[in-house]
Write a protein that binds this DNA or RNA. Structure first.
Lengths: 300, 300
DNA sequence: GCGGTCCATAGCGCCAGAGGTATCACACGG
DNA sequence: CCGTGTGATACCTCTGGCGCTATGGACCGC
């Protein structure tokens, strides 16, 4: 590509004059005096190599060469104005596309609140959310496949930054008719003989292993009677009496009439949810997303 | 439309850097040193208001804002390069559109030679030829409907310039078997008893009236036995024995085996063909057309 | 012929910015 | 730990060209 021969400024002047077809009026519209306008046009014509306007005593008219150049000039000006505008919107983070990965265990808890808040503030941003477990999220962040991830138990990765947005305990999920639901807190050991409803391990290996780990720490292997791919379904199955479950506390947001959530004892076990991103990612949308997350979940 | 905020030059620099993704190489391609390139990019980024490149130690990459601006910049640059090129071609008269009016009596004589010569030299010019008699041509020139006209017996019009490209006598058109074809020249009077083949007056009133005038000057009213809208047809009808004709000498270019063209006496009557154009027309195609006409038909 | 309209020309002041050189800061690899 | 390659920074020069005012010159209508 050759160096551009024309100045955009002159093309603008040209376009205005081509509309007015009158040096005086065009100069007024441009906010300059008439002689400078004449100069600009002359300079442009010199660069083009041919006259663009035919000067008459009753105003001016375009020459064929001018008629040919005009649409190109207009398109170029519009193109740039639009492109610049779009670039600025993206640069300022008020528009663009943000690809968000999330762990399945967050699909009905932190994710909706976060996305809703974000959408409210940045309605022009195209959010692309993708469900994936923690390890693939880390890989996808590295590959640039996603811009931000919502991770359970964030691993430390060299090029990634993470911020914990939620640290929560576990709760027992019980049918409200269950005897244990009468207690304010449930000892994990008390669930030893109960059938369990859990997510398949493949969906959320991290949280799955934590839950199974809790049971083992209490001295039993949970008897998994039923699997369900969404926490909502897990809750529904518990409500239907198919079993009990242990889940991160944020599951409380799923409110079902026949389900009771009870603090467990010991309550020391906690699981963290973090937001992760490429440390060197300059994308302003990311910063905004982090801000929104901060506002949503405190200074976690 | 607002004043443009960017300099095309910077967009060019931007586009090159976006291709190379390396300040050093881009600077070489641009033929400048590296620091000025850094400055250009910085200036552009300042105007846009956001970084366009993410600088890394192993080269640079585009930010989302940069990715958004790049296609717009490229399109604008291409647009302008193409538009400028087209405008120059038109300005220099090597491309464009030229609307040519012509009198029917020239359709098979001067017109083809002229157009062929012109097309050879200016192959990119879009020639639009339109058959019309002299008076409408003059009007069409005034209206800007045509750019140049080929006129029989050009009238003097205030805003039009004309140049005679051909001044020719008349010839008798005879079947080659006709007794008069044995003579080298024919007196008009000798045609008094012959049936005539002529164009309808509406097609070429000027030349038609000149021919009828020749007969009257020789003392008779021509008996028009047949009309034909093209001179080629006239010649063919003469060949077929339907009559004789009088025609401008350039009709000789229509070569038919059974037709003889003979000089007439007295040979003083001449008809002129002129090229006409708007005096103030800046169209360079017109100048070229006049040049070609000059070369084709001498400095007449 | 005179004033009005319209564009071109001349000459001037001024500064944004393009380009240069020299040097720095940083990251990475041996 | 030091060389190498990357881009950034500092500082300088110089000029292109933008805009101004004042004036010229062509044309038109009254």
């Amino acid at each position: 590509m050759d160096r551009p021969e024309l100045a955009l400024h002159q093309l603008h002047v040209f376009a205005v004059l081509a509309e007015e077809l009158h040096f005086g009026r065009a100069a007024v519209r441009l906010g300059i005096a008439q002689p400078p306008l004449s100069q600009q046009i002359r300079r442009l014509e010199e660069r083009v190599g041919h006259p663009l306007f035919a000067r008459g005593p009753r105003g001016v008219s375009l020459t064929p060469a001018g008629r040919e150049l005009l649409p190109a000039a207009r398109r170029a000006l519009d193109e740039l104005a639009a492109g610049l505008d779009a670039a600025r919107r993206i640069g300022s983070g008020t528009a663009g596309r943000l690809r968000v990965g999330f762990a399945a265990s967050l699909a009905l808890t932190v994710l909706p609140a976060l996305l809703r808040s974000y959408r409210e503030r940045y309605s022009q941003v195209d959010l692309e959310i993708r469900e994936m477990t923690t390890a693939p999220q880390v890989a996808a962040l590295h590959e640039g496949e996603i811009d931000v991830g919502l991770l359970r138990e964030p691993p430390a990765a060299p090029d990634l930054d993470t911020r914990v947005i939620l640290s929560e305990g576990f709760v027992a999920v019980l049918p409200s008719t269950h005897p244990l639901a009468a207690q304010r807190a449930v000892r994990v050991k008390q669930l030893a003989e109960e059938p369990f409803v859990l997510l398949p391990r493949a969906i959320g290996p991290t949280v799955h292993d934590r839950i199974v780990g809790l049971c083992r720490a209490a001295g039993f292997e949970p008897a998994i009677a039923q699997r369900a791919v969404e926490w909502q379904t897990v809750a529904a199955l518990v409500e239907a009496g198919l079993g009990v479950s242990l889940a991160p506390a944020s599951i409380r947001r799923i409110r079902l009439g026949g389900v009771a959530y009870r603090r467990i004892e010991p309550g020391t076990a906690r699981t963290t949810v973090a937001i992760g991103w490429r440390r060197d990612d300059p994308n302003p949308l990311l910063l905004h997303f982090l801000e929104v997350a901060h506002d949503c979940f405190g200074s976690g």
